[in-house]
Amino acid sequence: MRRSEQLSPAGDRHWRGSARFAVSCALVFCAMTLLVDWDAESLTPLRALLWVALSTAVCAVLLPPQVSAGPGWLTVRTPWRRCMVRTDALTTVWQHDGASSHLVLRDTYGRRLELDPRVLTANPLIWHELDTGVRRSVDRGTLRQGAEVLERLGHRIDDETAQAVLRASGLS
């Protein structure tokens, strides 16, 4: 297959909207703090710089990780780092439940990645790429721990997708 015929990676289709929301919140925070400080007649260049820096921090905290997947790989990018694992060479998978549930994947190369399972639920193409890679890992015998975690997650994603289809068609 020539390079021009290769498929583009699957990406989080909701990331741009979430990123716009994070930037909007940061801009509103910056504008409000500058206006309040200006109205109190205490705005100085140093304080303005402080408010801009705090607004940048708000944006960085609210900015969601950008998840993308392709044949045999999954990548999560944050403002600070980029993590990638080979999904066709996974060794362990586990899920931390609680207030902030996240999925942890580790491959044979020692790389580790964490992501929110809701990203997989909201993006069937990313889930498909991950599931295909996991099946290859199982076939190759590299996935020693966590296949049942992904199986449960797959059933949950399938159930939610079926319910969404039934709601959209008016049958539920």
Rank of each mutant, 00 (worst) to 15 (best):
R86W: 03
D131L: 08
D107N: 02
G11D: 10
D12K: 09
A10F: 07
R13E: 13
R106L: 11
P117R: 07
W94Y: 13
S101T: 12
L150W: 01
S101E: 13
S18Y: 14
V138A: 09
P71R: 10
C25N: 13
T132N: 02
L62F: 10
Y109N: 08
D88Q: 03
G141F: 00
E151W: 05
V58Y: 05
H128W: 05
L54Q: 08
T92E: 09
V23C: 08
T56W: 06
R140Q: 01
R77Y: 10
R136A: 10
D12R: 08
L27H: 11
D12H: 08
A60K: 13
M84I: 12
T161A: 15
Q95Y: 02
D88M: 00
V61I: 14
D159I: 14
A168I: 01
R3K: 12
A19F: 06
W38M: 11
S24V: 12
L43E: 05
D131P: 00
V67C: 07
R140H: 03
A60W: 15
T132M: 00
A60F: 15
G154K: 03
R135F: 05
W38C: 07
T44V: 07
R106D: 07
L125V: 04
T108L: 00
S169H: 03
P117S: 04
A40K: 09
S100I: 11
L153K: 01
R16M: 13
P9H: 11
D158W: 15
R144Q: 12
T92L: 05
L34S: 09
W73K: 08
T75D: 03
L90A: 04
L103Q: 03
L63C: 08
L27V: 15
G98T: 04
Q6V: 11
A147H: 04
A89P: 01
C25K: 09
D88E: 05
V165E: 13
V58S: 08
L54Y: 10
C59Y: 13
S4F: 14
T92P: 01
V61M: 15
S4C: 11
N123G: 03
T108D: 02
E148A: 13
L113D: 02
T33P: 02
W15K: 07
D39P: 08
R111L: 06
L54K: 05
L62D: 05
W15R: 06
L62T: 06
V104R: 09
T161I: 12
T44N: 07
R112K: 12
D12S: 08
M32C: 15
